[in-house]
């Protein structure tokens, strides 16, 4: 059942992005940025956590989960350090993704030639 929910959730997020892309002049860069901000916003009231429970990994695949993970990392340190914790833990959960993207793209760009 989680697989079905994952399909529906991730599909709907992509569908929404495609509708925005087709009907406005926004570039894909704008859309991913908007979706990250929306993901962070949905976590103010714990809405995105419910999506993650409902759709499992399907809710973690769209870029909206990036905003969700940023705010969750920050909130974990806020419990211990108060307002200063917002600065300390923001990348705790997303560092894996960012580091992986940097390392893989750096190493692979040394190996492969650009293609048109």
């Amino acid at each position: 059942m989680t697989y079905f929910n994952a399909f529906i959730f991730c599909g709907l997020v992509c569908l929404l992005g495609q509708i925005i892309l087709d009907n406005t002049k926004l570039t894909p860069g704008h859309i991913t940025t908007i979706f990250v901000v929306v993901g962070a916003f949905l976590d103010v009231f714990n809405i995105y956590d419910k999506f993650v429970l409902w759709a499992g990994g399907g809710a973690l695949v769209p870029i909206t989960s990036f905003g969700h993970l940023l705010i969750h990392g920050a909130m974990d340190t806020v419990h211990n350090f108060g307002v200063m914790g917002l600065f300390m833990g923001m990348f705790d959960l997303t560092s894996s993704g960012i580091v992986a993207a940097i390392v893989f793209s750096f190493i692979l760009s040394l190996i492969f030639q650009p293609r048109d």
């Binding site: 989680t2 529906i8 992005g17 495609q18 990994g57 695949v61």
Partner: peptide
């Protein structure tokens, strides 16, 4: 028509990406 088609393809491919993500987690 292309908008509908694009939206449909985005839904299907995006859905399969979600399924793949959940499958990898499992």
């Amino acid at each position: 028509e292309p908008k509908l088609k694009n939206a449909f393809i985005a839904f299907i491919i995006g859905g399969f990406m979600g399924v793949l993500g959940n499958f990898l987690v499992d």
